[in-house]
């Protein structure tokens, strides 16, 4: 304001020009201070990884008055999880002395991560994974539409050849172990996942393995 007043006071042209030139430069230091303060604040308070959700359908509780028929599951694998350890057996469970005269079930140990469960599952669930590859190729060459592709994958997962997975956890298993396994199942396109209770006979086998 004072400058303007002076300018209007009738000075010579040259002087006026010089005064204007001198005042164009603003001291930006406070501005920079503020900018970096805000920057630091946002960097520290923001969370980048938005939480995601993984849906999982649990089997419905059996109603007391409705009798459920024993379903024959022909292509199943059962995973048993304990404290950071994972075991599995294929097919049905047979105790040490069973009526059918089958050999008793043995637990095999595997590991979380790419070399353990993932390799095992990709081997056992070949029919679905190969079918998915074919569908994907068709989708890429535009022979089928996206919704046909998705329903195709759904059918594949429900087919008889597709692997069914049962998950049983003992009282020492961590949630992380469980989620890791479900994650591997998702990666390998397993359609039927059933978290069920551990049988006492299985607990015995597991205890023997853990010793």
């Amino acid at each position: 304001m004072a400058d303007m007043g002076e300018g209007g006071g009738g000075h010579e042209k040259g002087g006026k020009k010089r005064a204007k030139k001198g005042s164009t430069r603003v001291d930006m230091t406070p501005l920079v201070d503020l900018a970096f303060l805000l920057l630091t604040f946002f960097v520290l308070t923001s969370t980048f990884s938005k939480p995601k959700i993984m849906s999982l359908v649990y089997p419905a509780k059996p109603k007391e008055d409705v009798k459920i028929e024993e379903q024959k599951i022909n292509n199943a694998i059962t995973f048993l999880i304990s404290e950071n350890k994972i075991f599995y057996y294929k097919g049905e469970f047979y105790g040490a002395e069973n009526a059918k005269g089958k050999p008793a079930t043995q637990l095999e140990e595997t590991s979380f991560g790419p070399k353990g469960v993932r390799m095992l599952l990709s081997d056992l669930n070949k029919s679905v994974l190969n079918g998915k590859k074919k569908l994907k190729a068709k989708l890429d060459s535009k022979q089928i539409k996206t919704d046909e592709y998705l329903s195709g994958i759904r059918d594949l997962k429900r087919a008889d050849e597709a692997l069914k997975v049962l998950i049983k956890t003992d009282d020492k298993a961590f949630t992380k172990n469980f989620i890791d396994l479900v994650d591997e199942l998702r990666i390998n396109e397993i359609g039927v996942i059933a978290p069920v209770d551990l049988l006492p006979s299985e607990q015995e086998l597991l205890n023997a393995k853990l010793k």
Binding site: S49, P51, K52, I53, M54, S55, L56, V57, Y58, P59, A60, K61, I81, T169, D171, K172, A173, F174, T175, N177, F178, I179, V182, D183, P195
Partner: peptide
């Protein structure tokens, strides 16, 4: 422990709410 989560899951299942979601990063 998964046991703790299971306690909650059983309550959902008792109410016939079987479609659950886990939060993961």
């Amino acid at each position: 422990l998964y046991e703790h989560a299971k306690g909650v899951i059983e309550i959902f299942r008792d109410l016939d709410l079987n479609n659950l979601n886990f939060v993961t990063s």
